[in-house]
Every structure is written in C-alpha cells, then in structure tokens.
Amino acid sequence: MSYELEHLRTLEAESIHVMREVAAEFERPVLLFSGGKDSIVMLHLAIKAFWPARVPFPVMHVDTGHNFDEVYEFRDSTVEHHGLRLVVASVQESIDKGRVVEQSGPRASRNQLQTTTLLDAIEEHGFDAAFGGARRDEERARAKERFYSFRDEFGQWDPKNQRPELWSLYNGRHHRGEHIRVFPLSNWTELDIWQYIAAEGIEVPHIYYAHEREVFRRDGMWLAVTQYVTLADDEVVETRKVRFRTIGDASCTGAVDSDAGDVHAVVEEVAATRITERGATRADDRATEAAMEDRKREGYF
C-alpha cells in the first residue's frame, strides 16, 4: 500500500475540509450558485461534505436576468433534486429599486451591476460567509486570493492587507457587518474541474458541450444571438458548432469553436488548449489589464 492520494482526491479533500470548517464556525453561510461548472462542482463537494445530512446552508443565485435559458432550467432542477433552499438576488430588482443604473448602448452588460446586488443580498440576509467558485488559475488577481478572503463592511477586498493563511488553519473571525468570501476551489485548475466532472459523472448544462448555435463575432469572440444583445450594423450572424467554456451573463460570455460533444472530449480539448478560459470567453476581463482586480476590490465574486 503506497498511501498515495490521487490529485483529484487531494483537491476534493481540501475543499471538503474548508466547507466543513465554514459550516462549523459561521452562523449564516451561503453558497453562490450560478449554474456554471465551477459552482456545480462546488455544490457537488458540499453535498459530499455533509452526506448523509443535507447541505446546511442555502444557495444563492445572483441573477442578471440575462442568463441562458438552459442555465435557468438547470439551476431549478438541481435545487429541486437536492432539496436545497434557493435565494435569488435579482439585478433587475436592484435596477427597479434604483440601486444601480442599467447601462445603455449595444454593448450594455449587467455583469458589473451584479456586485451591488450581491452585496445588498449578503447584507439583507445577514450572510457571514459566502462560498464562491473562483479559482486561482483563472486570473492574475485571483492568483493572490486566500481560501478565506476577508471583506469589510463595504464588501471590499484589500489585496495588500490579506490575512496570512497557514496550514489548514483558517481564520474566519470578523465583526458584525463584515463577511468572509470562501473559495474552496482555490487550487483547482480548469482541467481539474473537467476531469472531476468526468470522474464523478456530474451533470452540467448542455451548452458546455458542442452544439450548433447562431453567433456573431465581437472582440474576437463568438457571442450568442440572444434577446439580451443588440447587433451593430457590421456584425453578421452565422451558425457555427460551438460550446461555452464559461457561463455567465449572455451579453459578455463568448463561445468557442468546438467539436467536443461529451465530457471526455472536453477534457481532451481543455488539456490541449493554448488560451485561458477567461481570455477566450470573457469580454468583461478585457476592459483593462486590472479589470478583475478592480471589480474584486469593489466586492465582485
């Protein structure tokens, strides 16, 4: 017996350990669930961490109202299947209440507006810990994140003043009104996520697999034709075989050309790719070099 633990099992154990710590030490944790692959894996880990008991916290979807229909359906069936409590924090409501102002123009996106909706919901429900599916390999600012990321009463992240994080001893202490973002998938890569989805037989929305779709070219990406985007005069619609590498707001999430029709093909494709998932698919990260850092400082996921 070698007592070697395979890398996916090591990552799984680390994530489960973190989730149990949070459940034991916080009063009102919540799991942020978007219906994307990372939050699906995170939810799967939560179910495993507390089995045979139920997941001892609700899930929250910060809904821009501009998501793909398949993702809404997936969210609702998942919540029902596992008997979870779902909290929907709606960007539309934030707009209606005047908390945020809808962007205008053909490139309007609700992606940025999510931060206010998220922080308002955390405050309204008194959540003291919020699990996020962010991974350090995704982006440079995220490479600097801790598992437990302290947020002040404004929800801000201060990357220059993070708590040291040693061994597997996590410090979740905070004052009233402050909270901790918890990232159980910190050490997972995109490839790990897909290998784990394959190994565990986890279901994900079908739009992660190759399918025919009407798309148009913008900023070097294929954007889906939906009711949420307005085409410019020179933008031409064509039907292509694509899949989504990330799933977010439909107005700023690009698809990639792909023939990967099942999970094993996706694993192969991800292993061979030469472009990061956010670089390939997220218009929101392209705004500036520090776009993610700036949004995270304000309280973004």
Binding site: R136, D137, K144, P159, K160, S186, N187, T189, L191
Partner: peptide
C-alpha cells in the same frame, strides 16, 4: 511582488 501568488502546472 506584494503577496504570495499561486501558479499551477502539470
């Protein structure tokens, strides 16, 4: 460099 950065390769 301000803080620990984590990198991944295989």
């Amino acid at each position: 460099t301000i803080d620990v950065a984590y990198r991944y390769f295989a």
